[in-house]
């Protein structure tokens, strides 16, 4: 996967700010050696660690009813992992890597899902947001009824909304530099 990177290391053009004309003809599926973003070291470390950080965020979310953490903390961790990619690789690469419209839809959908879980509790158990699922065994990962479900929903909500607001801020910053 990192075979084309070897040529990039000895390429002196990566330190220039001007876009290379030959970069379009190269492998466009991984445009990580482009002009935007930080140096190669930062990009490599980011590529290795971003999935670990996202995995840790999911761990925090899924164990929110057993250990400290939960949807809020795990959501912020996932948002920070995506923000790491945005800072290291720049806005153009992130737009290709992530489907921003999908993230916006997840963000809006999670607010709706929270209400749907609440209304299901109203129908099944008689009160809004009632814990209508089985409580299960204490200290088991799958337990506590709707609490892990709502934790996952809140985690996605927090992660997507916090990442998207930084995304919009980053875009504004660039157009502003041209204007000023």
């Amino acid at each position: 996967m990192s075979k084309p990177k070897i040529t990039v290391i000895i390429d002196p053009d990566i330190y220039k700010d001007t876009p290379r004309p030959s970069s379009d003809k190269k492998d466009t599926s991984k445009p990580s050696s482009g002009k935007s973003g930080m140096t190669l070291i930062v990009k490599t470390v980011t590529r290795i660690t971003v999935w670990m950080i996202i995995l840790y965020g999911f761990y925090i979310i899924l164990h929110g009813h057993l250990t400290p953490g939960g949807g809020f903390g795990g959501g912020v961790i996932i948002a920070l992992a995506l923000l790491n990619v945005l800072l290291a690789y720049g806005r153009d690469f992130t737009q290709k890597w992530l489907n921003i419209h999908l993230l916006e839809n997840i963000e809006s959908l999670s607010a709706l899902l929270f209400v749907i879980v609440g209304i299901l509790g109203l129908f099944v158990s008689g009160s809004f947001l009632a814990n209508f699922l089985s409580k299960g065994q204490l200290f088991a990962v799958v337990s506590a009824g709707t609490i892990p479900l709502l934790n996952i929903i809140i985690g996605f909500k927090v992660a997507m909304s916090l990442f998207l607001v930084v995304w919009v801020l980053a875009g504004i910053k660039m157009s502003k530099g041209d204007a000023a």
Binding site: G64, H65, L66, T67, P68, G70, G118, L129, N131, K135, G136, Q137, L138, F139, S143, A144, G145, T146, I147, L150, N151
Partner: peptide, 16 residues
């Protein structure tokens, strides 16, 4: 609620 983390049980069950 079945949750070991009582803060989570307050957030998402008692005061959801």
């Amino acid at each position: 609620t079945g949750a070991a983390n009582l803060v989570a049980s307050v957030i998402l069950d008692y005061r959801a």
